[in-house]
Design a protein around this nucleic acid. Structure first.
Lengths: 173, 173
DNA sequence: CTCTTGTTTCAGTTATGACTGAAATTATAG
DNA sequence: CTATAATTTCAGTCATAACTGAAACAAGAG
């Protein structure tokens, strides 16, 4: 793996975006690097390529492994750990969506359920407010359910669906 | 508007989630409050209800207005500004998706275009790396385009589509 | 015009979370 | 079992961004 100007630009951008996507810079940079790298990389190589602390790489790789975005491999006769990223962009997407659902949707869903149950008991709450909570709950439930279903669809079908775009509406009629 | 326990729980949760959704706590809390409120609220009412600084409310409302999530209204014979949120959850969703596209997808799209053009010139970059950049670019382009198309679909059609879930694949065949 | 009421700006403070580097831990080879 | 090499943990530092409150600014009423 060589840090050419284009690769560097990609990695740095991914790092900046990472903060908007719910992780930190280093995690996103490492993911980008491993995605682009033609061969698996060792932690110490990542340290050199990104100029970050060894410990930071260690923690970040753990996080990426926990997301199932990165896995460990080995080379015969070498006891050091090598790491590689998923390379299928659709798989990457799927995994990221799944993560987001768990961190952004699921907690809200359970809050809304509690809230909806609780608010019905409240006599001093405006009926409009009650329906608003109910509406939001229903929306998040629908979205959450939809996510799960989409996850099951194979990549090839998914690409076809997306290419259809809004022409999909014609099929529904 | 009254701060009952259930409303408070909703607002606090929304605030916490806000940080994961790309804004800050106060912005998200105010949006939640206005969403739930049966009537439009004034800035000073929000200050009391949320116990935050007047200036913070002012800045946050500006942000919400710039996202088109909140709009200003007035009461006859009262020169103070009142604010109300969008109340249609699907509309809210649409606006938020649009914001996210602009902040998370568009910058990446232009970076990838630059990168893809630049990396072709590099003689010392592995072909595998080059195809990876190309694949990611294509993916982000497809997603971005899909977003735009989905935005045009009316709410009623969209709900029908989502309720179909993965049965949609049967239609495609 | 000036008083009152409401709004915004901005410098300083505070809170949050990422990052470092030294020390502790784990694992393998001999 | 000991020496060596690699990895992880964690306390402390640093960077970022939200929040406050005082002061400046607007706009309508009389």
């Amino acid at each position: 793996m060589k840090m050419t100007p284009a690769v560097e630009k990609y990695v740095l951008h991914w790092g900046e975006m990472g903060t908007r996507w719910g992780t930190n810079r280093t995690v996103a940079q490492i993911q980008a690097l491993l995605y682009l790298s033609p061969e698996p990389l060792r932690a110490d190589q990542i340290v050199d390529l990104l100029s970050v602390a060894r410990s930071n790489v260690s923690t970040s790789i753990r996080e990426l492994q926990s997301y199932r975005l990165v896995r460990m491999t080995h080379v015969l006769g070498d006891r050091r750990d090598y790491f590689e990223s998923l390379h299928d962009v659709w798989e990457l997407f799927r995994v990221i969506i799944e993560q987001r659902k768990q961190r952004e949707l699921n907690p809200t869903l359970s809050m809304l359920r509690d809230c909806a149950a609780e608010i019905d008991q409240e006599k001093d709450t405006d009926p409009l407010t009650k329906t608003r909570v109910a509406n939001m709950l229903q929306f998040v439930e629908t979205t959450s359910h939809w996510y799960e279903e989409i996850n099951d669809i194979p990549t090839s079908t998914l690409t076809k669906l997306m290419k259809l775009g809004k022409r999909i509406t014609k099929l529904v009629k």
